[in-house]
Design a protein around this nucleic acid. Structure first.
Lengths: 163, 163
DNA sequence: GTCCCTATACTCGGATAGCAAGTGTCCGAGTATAGGCGG
DNA sequence: CCGCCTATACTCGGACACTTGCTATCCGAGTATAGGGAC
């Protein structure tokens, strides 16, 4: 089980966009430079975020990306789902119907497999926890717990990038 | 994010072994036939279960696998961890230190990244839920909610396999 | 009849190919901007 | 001086290679069993 790097990049990008002043936007190349990741590949994930309605792509010269909705309403679950897909990690292949039970009518297996149910419960708990954190929470955490010198460094870089 | 098929097979195998009478054992080939999966590949995952101390491999002619511990003490989390590995799905690559913050001393980043913390909380909730279900729970569920005709079919097959 | 020995057949275990999905990259379509031109 | 037009430069969007890890398979090492033979 492995979560792709794109998820981490996407969340960091959303947090950065949420920290921009006013309705400022940032192009993919700048977001990649800010996080030190390949620009072309990050663009791929930003497309996924745009398709999911999380960020808004502004075309043209001075274009870029900005959050499509307030950071307060944007949960980590939405970002993870947009990048990784919405199908569950565990997929029951109904192996209980294979082997000696092959050929038995499907009506004999009404309830879902107990294993699939348990795994689904676990994933639901995982999603619930991700939904409890919003991008605004991340921004607040940065404002409170990140060293001022780091914030200053990032702020200066953003000023030069936005000009 | 995707969980390999081997996890589903491993849990089904543990449930089947837990349902065996007395200290009976079942070889990998029979477990594969019972579940309709490739025997050689299932053997690979059974090795992982044996290495983790979940099942016990009995060598020799009449050998096979049996549970190494009581089904009541065996949780789904242990099985999933044994097959998929114990490293977390989300791994923070510390991209906050790259880009314009590159070169800043590491002492400026004492607390873990808020994103990594949130993802870790979600995974902890996932593990907690998996730990709440034991293999014995699965067996009980089968005894209560699975159609008697299905249980009969599997029981007959097991009798012929154990002889 | 009992014990021992040997050959066998079956088991697990690790080392070896194949494939799919994630990873990384590129170039083309489209648009807001900046400058130049005409009025 | 003001408005319009055009060329430009920058943006996003989708199509194209590559690498890692999961999927699938095989053959060799080891052992309990079954049978036969000697006592």
């Amino acid at each position: 089980m492995k979560i792709g790097d794109g998820v981490e990049w996407a969340i960091h990008c959303c947090a950065a966009l949420a920290g921009l002043p006013g309705d400022g936007s940032l192009p993919a190349a700048k977001l990649a430079e800010l996080h030190g990741v390949p620009a072309a590949y990050l663009a791929k994930h930003l497309q996924a975020l745009a398709a999911a309605g999380i960020v808004q792509a502004l075309p043209g010269r001075r274009g870029g990306y900005r959050l499509a909705r307030p950071a307060e309403e944007l949960t980590l679950l939405e970002i993870v789902t947009a990048v990784e897909g919405d199908e569950p990690a565990f997929r029951c292949t109904e192996i209980r119907r294979r082997g000696p039970c092959k050929g038995l009518p499907a009506s004999l297996f009404p309830a879902p497999c107990a294993i699939a149910s348990a795994m689904a419960r676990a994933e639901a708990a995982w999603r619930r926890e991700l939904q409890a954190t919003s991008v605004a929470d991340l921004v607040r955490h940065v404002e409170r717990h990140v060293d001022p010198r780091v914030r200053r460094r990032v702020g200066d870089w953003l000023d030069s990038a936005l000009s």
